[in-house]
Design a protein around this nucleic acid. Structure first.
Lengths: 237, 237
DNA sequence: CGCCATATTGAAACTAGTCAACCGGAGTGG
DNA sequence: CCACTCCGGTTGACTAGTTTCAATATGGCG
């Protein structure tokens, strides 16, 4: 259990298919559990397993959550990385299609699935967020299907830059005040998210560092020396 | 323009993350354009481009639609393959995050995006379908990130078998009456969907044929000799 | 201090991509 | 009618990029 993770506040920017970590406080009004119950999970705790009865829907109030699927031989793919405001557990089937794990210390609001039909406010919020997450997933499918390892890692880092990295990226901005990003994921998690091996991810990070595009001491806290150059390496621009 | 395509009736089985082609008539009650306008598109027609103003939402009434994204250098990823009942154009941003193209002759219902907020019936239908499409996308992310070329192609063919191939696949059933499936996509489209090259897809099909798992004369109409064996090649079971 | 987990680096193996030739059916025009 | 072209698909040879396997480094924590 790592105190760092409770400080971190996932602030979502899914509307342009990225998410970001923020340290500058401000819970962003996510503390409205309505009629749902609030649960807390520790770092790495399993919130929901693939195949579990899908009787609840979840909304992230604080922290980060990963959704993933496993193949019988153990291969894992992290499908979505969720931040504050994101939702999961919306499979229309009787069982969940994915597993969910706490990426950090996390608080989630849990609602009975039936309340989707009875609570219009909740449903609208879930629907709106689902649409945003869908776009993020579209973008990620492009990454998984068509980008090189270098491009994947560059894209991954860019998505962590507030307001950047999404599909609708506004282009280079003068005021890149904070170019330091917190990865909040291990190399293994990044690899499973990007459809690569841990070694390939590590090599890509090392190559980016060697070329001077990024710098880091701790491997999970990256200083982006040139947002512009990194952006060009994503393959998207 | 190919008459074959109008006969084909995409009947969606997205609830378990597959879709299927049906020839046995029955529009399945999809002919209810409510307050929307119905448009028809020819085979290969562009319905919506990436970056277009996202002022409408679409519902497939008949035929098939592909959603795709392009990288600046021309790489293409087909993100979703949509059938009857599926929806698109739901990006919460001002512009569409994906392009949509008619895979067959297709009829779609087009609604003003604002009617999502005013028409509860429409919104519920869109929401329900979006949740199903989300699961399909989850499954596809697993395919793109973690499956081998052989597994991707096997999975692709399995998804075309009615009631099979989805994540919640019920396992081998005795009554595999119809094991003939219509691909309805060119090798290039399959490649762009599966994150492979046309040559790799072609080789995978040839290998499956050589091994006796499938057979075909026309390359877009495949007879599955052993659903069981094919299923085992998907990597999912 | 030393252990353990995570990360990095190197070398070899392998999968899928690239480039190029060829096939076969559909449509065209002499 | 048949040669010709076009287009999509197949196949082969070679290449490149990623994975695999293995060794080495680093950092947190008992």
């Amino acid at each position: 259990m790592d105190a760092r993770h409770f400080r971190s506040e996932f602030s979502n920017a899914k509307f342009d298919s990225g998410w970001s970590l923020r340290f500058d406080g401000g819970c962003g009004g996510a503390d409205r559990p309505d009629k749902g119950k609030v649960f807390s999970y520790h770092h790495r705790a399993l919130i929901l397993d693939e195949g579990d009865a899908a009787s609840s829907v979840y909304e992230v109030l604080e922290g980060g959550v990963i959704l993933f699927k496993l193949l019988p031989d153990g291969r894992r793919q992290i499908i979505e990385v969720l931040g504050v405001g994101d939702v999961f557990g919306l499979a229309p089937t009787a069982v969940s299609d994915v597993a969910a794990e706490a990426l950090t210390e996390v608080r989630v609001a849990v609602y009975d699935k039936r309340s989707i039909d009875t609570d219009a406010t909740l449903r609208d919020r879930l629907f709106a967020r689902l649409r945003a997450q869908m776009c993020a997933l579209h973008d990620h499918a492009l990454l998984l299907g068509r980008k090189s390892a270098q491009e994947r890692v560059a894209t991954f880092i860019m998505r962590l830059v507030p307001g950047r990295g999404g599909y609708a990226c506004a282009g280079p901005s003068k005021t890149e005040s904070e170019t330091r990003v917190d990865l909040a994921m291990t190399r293994q998690e990044i690899a499973d998210y990007l459809g690569l091996t841990i070694e390939t991810v590590s090599r890509a990070f090392s190559a980016l560092r060697r070329s001077g595009v990024i710098a880091y001491d701790r491997q999970d806290n990256v200083q982006i020396a040139s947002v512009c150059r990194l952006c060009r390496l994503t393959g998207s621009h």
